[in-house]
Design a binder for these strands. Structure first.
Length: 922
DNA sequence: GATCCGACAGCTG
DNA sequence: CAGCTGTCGGATC
């Protein structure tokens, strides 16, 4: 169940008559428990309650009680030994009139009337396996409102399918935005009389709903008609009280789709919520899902949490404003100058969605301005921060519409907060007519047109800089001479997942500048456009992006271009996990990149709860000089030749499990000699056996006589033919061969391509001549053992962890990026002998613990002392070769490696591709 | 011919 | 059901 379905289920539950016996089960069912789970609880098998209630292990202890005994009952639940024993997360007591619950982990409590408990459903979301950021679970209103609007939206489309077509989508989106505005307005006295809009619709529309659309259309028309024009426009008396709202919101057609009885009741139901509680920053990103067919129900899928937004905005400019406020003290003149500065600041989000970042930036700036006004003794003073200084571009129509509305609501709420309801109301209407959120494709628009710099003749230059300049935006900023800050969380998409349109977007931005750009993530185009904008206007930018543009091969593609635009990484936040309300969370690891062309002397590198100042931040987001490592097809140093393992592309038919292998041999003993041991990352690290069918061309005739093998080859052929990949297609005619197969009876040193970041050393292993290593590992065939000493060293791990790509934050080993670029001093014969000895000692130490796996042996908590000692000796010997002593720490290791890499690439002819060393600000 | 990556994906405790 | 940790094969060079 998703959040929308849960909201609906508990809303229904709260409206039903209270049934003491049934309630606990109904409650659990509403939170998505399966029928069988409920059945087992009813039967008592899994019910651990010692108080006659219902206790679900690891979840909740519920007890209903006599009227008036709720508080005592909750206390009893808390004291119950069974609650603790079953590790309940929540306790809940109710008598049908009152409702109390506690989150035992956090100690937070809920106490409300029974009928109101759905208002707190965010509190219980963990019960449904939905973990969420605090802002969302604390703002149940936004979820409930979204959920109800969602139902209304779906119901309206059901009765008015033409409103769902591409031509009418905009009208539909507009309708939703207008309704949201009306709900907000009627609860905040913008409309005279609480609930005025909903009530008017309820009274004036027939119970059978037949004229609901006409009533709403009339109200919309009133809101689009100035007082003096109303008589002429024949606005009926019952609509007279509704103010002239204007704005792009109510102009442009007032057609409304027909409402079924159900749709009408949904509408009244949505209006019944208390819309004063709306949170424009959260609500917007949730409501945008309503209009997306694929996303409907997945509330807040693209929600950027407020802490994450502040990770961007604080270091970008808010921290500085606050510091200046601090410095100003009570000096009225300095405060005035700061207020003037704030009023001229432009914030621009080129992928603004429903305006998340813009709303937060606006609210934070209003807070600072309010403090200035308070200190200057002008608490009632109107804000000088114009909403139109908060500009955005959004591809989708609905969020673009919502973003403007969210800003309007934020402005009103800030006015109420800082100046009082009366002053807020006095100046709220009519809304500004302009639209300062552009609906369009940010990678195809000229940002200088959407967010023009001040005091320059942009038009001419813009034509030089961008391929597709748009017409100048209609409205000018009220910020002559002000600063501009670009921010946001643009879309990420790796090259494989990009749509044709996204690839074309990438081509427009990158093709003129770079030959090989197609492996870049989509978000890289936003980073580059921001860098270009910064360079041209002196703006500064900060985005949340996927961490992959700061890792591996993408670094050498993107960053030289960014540095060429004279940008510096002024601040950055290293990898952190994305989190939102979606039950299947977006599995993505993010970073924050702050760029500017006017850096101060200090760079700030943020981690999880840490900040460090440094002289430079490299594109790998380490505090080091900017050295960019480019992948090579052969080794920079005189070390072994490493290559990819053997790639089957077989749909599983060439790589049977142990069971399948046994079946094959049982069916045809002749097949035995074509089965080899097969290892990938997983088998190298965790042990366990896998098998592959390995057939030399000469044996094909014999294989074809073995039915069970021939059948498998036929399946491989089919799989390769039906694949979208060219290489798979080409190899369909030779299904007995792996599509990439360097192996033929070689022993090898194998390194898993993906492994956990927690280990202190890279996993690596020797494989026998009869083992095939898969494409999930890299191999050096017939290699001298000292190569393993290099791979197993701390130095190598530090290098790999910095310059290779990653899967989330885990280590991803690459021969071209990591091994071939690894700088090693010239090794003497003696060095090689010493290192070989070290490698042997490591292997021997491992053997002492047979049959422990690499995962067991290298568990950072439980590494055996002898293995640890062998690695220490290995590091000692290798590091002495580098600098004649042990390195002090990883920073020093990295410094030396980058230094050596720079020297070696400068002197040696590059193997392939260009070497690059960019200064911090080349 | 070779490889790097995945707004991921599958397993397990 | 969330924490953990690495498959598989396509797109790209």
């Amino acid at each position: 169940m998703n959040a929308v379905e849960i909201e609906q289920a508990i809303t229904d539950l709260a409206e039903q008559p209270f049934d003491r016996a049934e309630f606990p089960y109904a409650f659990l069912e509403a939170f998505g428990n399966k029928a069988t789970t409920i059945k087992r609880l009813r039967a008592g098998a899994s019910n651990k309650s010692d108080l006659g209630g219902v206790l679900q292990t690891s979840n909740i202890h519920i007890l209903t009680c006599d009227v008036g005994r709720v508080t005592q009952t909750l206390a009893a639940l808390k004291a119950s030994p069974a609650t603790a024993k079953a590790k309940a997360k929540f306790i809940l007591a109710t008598d049908g009139a009152d409702f109390e619950a506690e989150d035992l982990a956090s100690g937070e409590t809920v106490a409300c009337a029974f009928k109101d408990f759905p208002d707190h459903f965010g509190f219980f979301l963990p019960l449904a396996g939905i973990s969420t950021v605090r802002q969302i679970s604390e703002n149940a209103f936004d979820i409930r409102a979204t959920s109800r609007l969602n139902r209304l939206y779906v119901e309206l489309l059901k009765d008015n399918p033409e409103w769902g077509t591409a031509e009418r989508r905009h009208d539909m989106n507009k309708l939703m935005a207008r309704l949201i505005f009306c709900f907000f307005a009627e609860d905040t006295d913008i409309f005279i009389g609480k609930g005025r809009f909903t009530e008017t619709v309820a009274q004036m529309s027939a119970k059978d709903s037949s004229n609901t659309h006409e009533v709403i259309a009339t109200l919309f028309r009133a809101m689009n008609t100035k007082r003096e024009d109303r008589a002429a426009a024949k606005i009926p008396r019952w609509a007279e009280d509704f103010p002239y709202v204007n704005g792009a919101l109510f102009s442009g057609g007032d057609e409304v789709p027909r409402f079924s009885k159900i749709a009408r009741s949904y509408l009244l139901h949505v209006g019944g919520l208390d819309w004063t509680k709306i949170n424009p920053d959260i609500f917007g990103s949730m409501i945008q899902a309503v209009a997306e067919d694929e996303e409907r129900g997945e509330l807040g899928m693209h929600y950027t949490s407020v802490p994450n937004i502040l990770k961007v905005l604080n270091p970008l400019f808010l921290d500085d404003l606050r510091a200046k406020l601090e410095e100003a003290g009570d000096n009225a003149r300095v405060l005035l100058n700061l207020r003037k500065r704030i009023a001229k600041i432009r914030v621009f989000d080129p992928a603004c969605g429903s305006g998340n970042f813009l709303v937060i930036a606006y609210k934070e700036m209003r807070a600072i301005e309010a403090e200035i006004n308070r200190r200057r003794g002008e608490p009632d003073r109107a804000s000088e921060i114009p909403l139109t200084n908060f500009r955005g571009i959004e591809l989708r129509d609905f969020p673009a519409e919502i973003a403007r509305l969210a800003l309007v609501i934020a402005e009103y709420q800030c006015d109420v907060l800082y100046r009082g309801q009366k002053l807020a109301l006095a100046e709220f209407l009519p809304l500004r007519n302009e639209n300062w959120i552009t609906c369009g494709n940010a990678l195809r628009l000229d940002w200088l047109s959407v967010c023009p710099p001040t005091g320059t003749d942009v038009k001419v230059l813009a034509d030089d800089l961008f391929e597709t300049p748009l017409d100048q935006a209609e409205i000018d900023f009220e910020n002559e001479g002000g600063e501009t800050y670009i921010c946001g969380n643009p879309p990420y998409q790796g090259s494989v997942g990009q749509t044709a349109q996204q690839k074309e977007d990438m081509a427009r931005v990158l093709a003129p500048l770079l030959k090989t750009y197609k492996d870049l993530d989509y978000v890289a185009a936003f980073v580059l456009k921001a860098a270009q904008f910064n360079n041209f206007t002196g703006a500064a930018s900060a985005f949340v992006t996927t961490n992959s543009i700061t890792q591996g091969e993408q670094v050498a593609m993107l960053w030289p271009l960014v540095f060429k635009e004279c940008n510096t990484i002024n601040f950055a936040h290293t990898s952190f996990l994305w989190s939102n309300l979606a039950s299947n969370k977006a599995a993505v690891t993010c970073v924050i990149l702050g760029l500017t062309t006017n850096p101060g002397s200090e760079r700030k590198l943020f981690g999880e709860g840490t900040v460090r100042s440094c002289a430079n931040i490299s594109p790998y987001l380490v505090a080091a000089d900017t050295v960019i490592v480019t992948k090579r097809s052969s080794a920079l140093s005189a070390i072994g030749h490493m290559q990819s393992g053997n790639k089957p592309t077989d749909g599983g038919h060439l790589t049977p499990s142990t069971e399948e292998k046994d079946q094959i041999i049982a069916a045809s003993p002749d097949a035995r000699r074509f089965l080899k041991r097969y290892v990938g990352s997983r088998e190298l690290i965790n042990g366990g056996a896998r098998w592959c069918i390995w057939i030399e061309d000469d044996d094909l005739e014999e294989v074809n006589r073995i039915d069970i093998l021939r059948d498998r080859l036929e399946k491989v052929r089919e799989m390769r033919l039906s694949s979208n990949g060219a290489q798979a297609n080409e190899n369909a005619a030779t299904p007995h061969r792996f599509v990439f197969a360097p192996h033929s009876r070689h022993a090898a040193i194998a390194v898993p391509n993906v492994s956990s970041e927690r280990r202190l050393f890279l996993p690596c292993e020797i494989t026998g001549y009869d083992t095939v290593v898969s494409n999930l590992a890299s191999v050096i065939y017939d290699a001298p053992l000292w190569n393993l000493a290099l791979i197993a060293s701390r130095l190598h791990l530090v290098w790999i962890a910095t310059v290779c790509g990653r899967l989330k934050t885990d280590i991803r080993y690459s021969n071209t990026l990591g091994w071939n670029t690894f700088p090693v001093p010239t090794l003497t014969d003696k060095n090689k002998v010493d290192l070989t000895r070290c490698a042997e000692d490591i292997l021997l130490a491992r053997e002492h613990h047979f049959p422990a796996t690499i995962a067991d042996l290298y568990d950072p908590e439980n590494m055996p002392a002898d293995l640890r000692a062998a690695h220490d000796r290995n590091d000692e010997v290798l590091e002495r070769i580098y600098i004649g002593r042990r390195f002090k720490n990883d920073t020093e290791r990295l410094e030396k490696l980058f230094d050596l890499y720079t020297k070696m690439t400068a002197s040696a002819a590059p193997a392939k591709g260009k070497k690059r060393k960019a200064g911090a600000n080349a």
